[in-house]
Write a protein that binds this DNA or RNA. Structure first.
Lengths: 188, 188
DNA sequence: ACCCCTATATATAAAGG
DNA sequence: TCCTTTATATATAGGGG
């Protein structure tokens, strides 16, 4: 619809994608309104842009539409959602636990369950990671310094906000591992 | 659209109304599919004809769309229990994100947003952590060795299960950070 | 109700400001 | 990014099986 025929695939150019979304979003909403009026139908549309911005249209209260949806489709939105949420919580918690174990191992804690082989590997990982990280950090540090006092002032400002953000996060959900490391990073 | 311009009001003739609904319903669904594909957006449409027949389209599971809707709009579609579950997911996700950032910093990645002060602190943290961890690991390693071959055999067995568990976790949700570190730990 | 056809009305891609 | 202006592509009203 327009000067060029468009293939039905994700528009690669980000700007074009956004522009097209804005146009078509309006088009879709208009069509939804029209059909609900012309044909005395109930229509609900919920859209999320790539960036996460929501747009909705519903000719009747959405909750009523959903109640109807459940009755018609036989799908139990509520219960199913509950199960999904619970499953997601399990998944995310497990991931969290793994991350924390990783951090502890890297700090030399909770080594008991590790076999000699794993300990050896951990030593190597630490050694490699340490050397690489240290080099990168120094390099980055050096670059920053080259930019002189002005930038350093700016960084101090940023540092202040970063530290308070870190503090806020601690208050929020003080994981031991994180608190310790945050302190290490944020203070001095 | 078509031979006659149509007023935006309920079509009086029942047959025409139904025919128009059928046509426009398909048009709307097509548009919804297109926008979701072209613009990488998430779109859900639920429609009920005058007669009560339901049609739905959702680029992502409708339940998830609705969860997002709730969060964005602030409107409660279902009970508080679900909201608590959602809040917990958000909380743990945020914590995961922080943990991953920490791991990256410790690996010398994503250093750009850090100020010189923070970089310095990170260096110290790495240095201290590294020395401490290494000492602890060596000590632990030494102790294990003292217990001789029998225990070592046992540890090999444990190691095997640990490694496959780690591999399974990778398959599950391969975060870059984790995968790399797990490899370091699990593989030698 | 469901196709098909065709004239028109709309939607929108591309381009420029 | 948003608006305006085209030229084109699509959607669809009305009509006939």
């Amino acid at each position: 619809m327009g000067r060029g025929k468009t293939e039905l695939k994700r528009i690669e150019n980000s700007t074009n994608r956004q522009v097209t979304f804005a146009k078509r979003k309006n088009g879709l909403l208009k069509k939804a309104r029209e059909i609900s009026i012309l044909c005395d139908a109930d229509v609900s549309v919920v859209m999320f842009s790539e960036a996460g911005n929501m747009t909705e249209y519903s000719s009747a209260p959405l909750i009523e539409q959903l109640a109807r949806y459940q009755k018609e489709s036989g799908k139990t939105l509520w219960d199913a959602k509950h199960e999904r949420l619970s499953a997601e919580i399990d998944r995310v918690r497990k991931e969290n636990s793994n991350l924390q174990i990783e951090l502890r191992h890297l700090k030399g804690e909770d080594l008991k369950p590790l076999s000699p082989q794993e300990l050896h590997a951990l030593e190597n990982a630490l050694e490699d990671g340490y050397a690489g990280a240290r080099a990168k950090i120094k390099e980055h540090h050096r670059k920053l310094k080259k930019n002189g006092r002005l930038l350093e002032e700016e960084n101090k400002r940023l540092s202040a906000t970063y530290v308070s953000a870190a503090a806020a996060k601690q208050m929020e959900h003080g994981s031991n591992v994180k608190v310790e490391l945050r302190n290490g990073v944020g203070c001095i």
